[in-house]
Amino acid sequence: MGTGSGKLKKVSLNVPVTTEQLKDIEIGDIVYLNGVVYTAREGVYKRVLEGGESLPEGLAEISNANFHCSPAAARREDGHFDIGAMTGTASFRFSKWLDQWFDVSGAKIIIGKGGMTSEDYRNFFVPHGAIYLTTVGYGTGALLGRGIRGIRDVHWFDELGIAQAMWMVEVENFGPFIADSDLAGNSLFERETAKVNKGLAKLYEGTRAPALHRFGETNDRNDEMI
């Protein structure tokens, strides 16, 4: 990796991981994974958590790393799957399913784009001994693609399509990811945002609030917008 990464700690983890193996991970660590990771997002969550369908047999023994992702992939005529690149999708949208998902899946690592709130970390991740890894960039899809060794299985391909199916992906030196949370529930994104926020008031000096407001700026629907 190029310059500027010298001070950042690099960690390699074998999946499935134990909570014990996650205890030394600090927010801001650069993480690479080996083993199997699987994709699951709203399509899978709805089928399993709302539709009551069963997860693949022994999922947690194969992998406990859930990637919020859809691959750039295709099924070839001979039936084999071809994956070019993998990139995370924004995780905050999946918050409402996660508590139950940890119970059902035994996941210890969630990978995705942009992290979740530290409230989610404290409420859902900490009790389950899990951490969050964010993808980098975003869009180091080609680098992640290089870490793919094969497709172990694809579940619900016909029902959910390429983007929402559960892809079980064999990986080696799969990364980079950045640890956004630790086992205590701290968030790197929130730490950084707090630092950026300190400069905002000065930044906005000399700008003007618009004449016409809109809902969102007030949440009282009785208010006028002028």
Partner: peptide, 22 residues
């Protein structure tokens, strides 16, 4: 770190002829 990872990613995409972002 992020910007350098992205630069490396563009190179990987080009060399492997794979999508730069999935």
């Amino acid at each position: 770190f992020v910007l350098h990872a992205m630069l490396e990613n563009y190179q990987a995409a080009k060399e492997d002829r794979r999508a730069m972002c999935a």
